[in-house]
């Protein structure tokens, strides 16, 4: 085995919160398959962040530095990483499954005639080869996936699937490269980042949250769960489609593109439990799910659940709470 390369996302010298999980994955896979572990960081002026990464047990850190990599673009990142991979031929290339990785890693794999296994949640080694586990149908099922054909093999890792606190520290050399990039290779022009609105509601401070999903069917029905929230003294929150529809304001959205919450009690009503929702609430102390589908993935993280029609269950709960 010729090695495992972890590509670590950074912005303005700060590593992405999932980057070290990808590094932990690379260390683990490297140990299991008997391969050396490498890391790469890309950007302009990445010396300091490369030094941070060099504090882990690695064969080498590739610091890929170029003015044209200062701002992320799929063309720039793909060209730079393609050159690195062709020069060093790692067998496995691992990424955190971030928005940025979603944006360029499939392109990079395609440029090398391969397919990325996206968003893996677990892995195991069988006969010296990796079997990767990823979710299908928004988390309803898992699938075992294998690579076919020749390396390099590309995979991205779901947040939380590997633990950064298991990282082995060490001292690795940093190798700086300036890739050959020309301005006309980069076809898109990224402008500044911006945020849309201030958040008036701090769901993070709530002790109890009642959260409503698309099972509620119509805007008028929100009143049904509002009664439950009142009975519990809870804040009302929602899954993304509810906020997209304008049935509740955006600031009440929980999930990867909304708020992250960890209340004492989180009651999910008519929410299926897609990963983008789960990442925003799975740290809650006690989780209750109410869903008519016994296979809904929300039940996998629930401490207590009621399988049933929310339009019967929620009013019954309100009654029971009065007793």
């Amino acid at each position: 085995m010729s090695g495992v390369l972890a590509v670590l996302e950074q912005r303005d010298g700060v590593l992405h919160k999932s980057a070290l999980e990808a590094l932990a994955a690379a260390q683990q896979v490297g140990a299991e398959l008997g391969g050396k572990v490498f890391a790469a960081v890309l950007g302009s002026g990445v010396d300091a962040v490369a030094q941070t990464v060099a504090g882990y047990k690695l064969e080498k850190v590739h610091a890929i530095d170029h003015e044209l990599l200062k701002q992320y673009t799929p063309d720039g990142y793909t060209a730079a990483l393609k050159a690195l991979i062709e020069a060093h031929r790692p067998e496995y290339v691992l990424f955190p499954h971030t928005y940025q990785v979603r944006d360029f890693a499939p392109k990079l794999a395609t440029a090398l005639n391969r397919v990325l296994v996206s968003d893996l949640i677990a892995h195991r080694v069988e006969n010296g080869a990796l079997v990767l586990v990823r979710q299908l149908f928004q988390g309803k099922f898992n699938a075992d996936v294998r690579f076919a054909g020749e390396p390099p093999y590309f995979a991205s890792i779901q947040a939380g699937a590997f633990r950064a606190d298991k990282l082995e520290v060490g001292s690795a050399p940093v190798e700086k490269t300036v890739p050959e990039l020309k301005a006309d290779q980069v076809r898109t022009r990224p402008l500044e980042l911006f945020r849309e609105s201030q958040r008036a509601v701090d769901l993070g401070a709530a002790q109890i949250i009642v959260s409503v999903g698309r099972g509620i069917k119509e805007a008028e029905n929100i009143a049904v769960v509002r009664k439950l929230a009142e009975a519990l003294g809870a804040e009302l929150a929602a899954s993304r489609p509810i906020c997209d529809n304008g049935w509740l304001p955006m600031e009440r959205q929980v999930g990867s593109s909304g708020q992250t919450v960890a209340p004492k009690l989180y009651v999910a009503v008519g929410i299926s439990g897609a990963i983008q929702h789960l990442v925003g609430m799975k740290g809650s102390k006690t989780i209750v799910a109410i869903n008519k589908d016994p296979e809904a993935p929300i039940f996998e993280v629930a401490d207590y659940g009621i399988v049933g029609d929310l339009f019967e269950v929620v009013p019954a709960l309100v009654e029971a709470l009065k007793k």
């Binding site: 296994v117 699938a143 016994p294 629930a302």
Partner: peptide, 20 residues
């Protein structure tokens, strides 16, 4: 380049108490 080998219902990681 990738092969889907098997699909299955995930094992529960938490001991949930489900009422119906």
């Amino acid at each position: 380049s990738i092969r889907l080998e098997r699909i299955y219902t995930p094992e529960k990681t938490k001991q949930s108490q489900i009422f119906d």
